[in-house]
């Protein structure tokens, strides 16, 4: 299976990962190779196999419903790119 230029651009937009014009062809080739591998794997019979949710054969541990965290926003915002009035700042989002 091979991916074209348009598909790479679409995936680039979805993942918010920039792919430069000159790299598109190479990325398309690499992604196509990965998909070929999937195509190969599809030959395996998975009829009665439950999809694996986790590689560990263990059960989720639960914690009691207790508040254990304290306010650390000053410390956490010190490493944020931008903050003001206790809010994290991001480029303006318009809906």
């Amino acid at each position: 299976m091979s991916l074209g230029k348009a598909e790479v651009e679409y995936i680039s937009r979805l993942t918010q990962i920039e792919v430069r014009e000159e790299a598109v062809e190479g990325v398309a080739q690499k992604l196509s190779n990965i998909l070929d591998l999937f195509a190969q794997m599809e030959a395996a019979d998975t009829q009665d196999v439950l999809p694996m949710a986790h590689p560990l054969d263990a059960v989720q541990r639960l914690r009691p419903d207790v508040v254990t965290e304290v306010d650390q926003h000053e410390k956490l915002q010190a490493i944020a790119p931008a903050a003001a009035e206790a809010h994290y700042l991001v480029p303006q989002v318009i809906e």
Binding site: A82, A84, A86, V90, V93
Partner: peptide, 10 residues
């Protein structure tokens, strides 16, 4: 909150 930016309260 700040012109040209969006504040996020988590």
């Amino acid at each position: 909150l700040v012109p040209g930016q969006t504040g996020v309260d988590l």
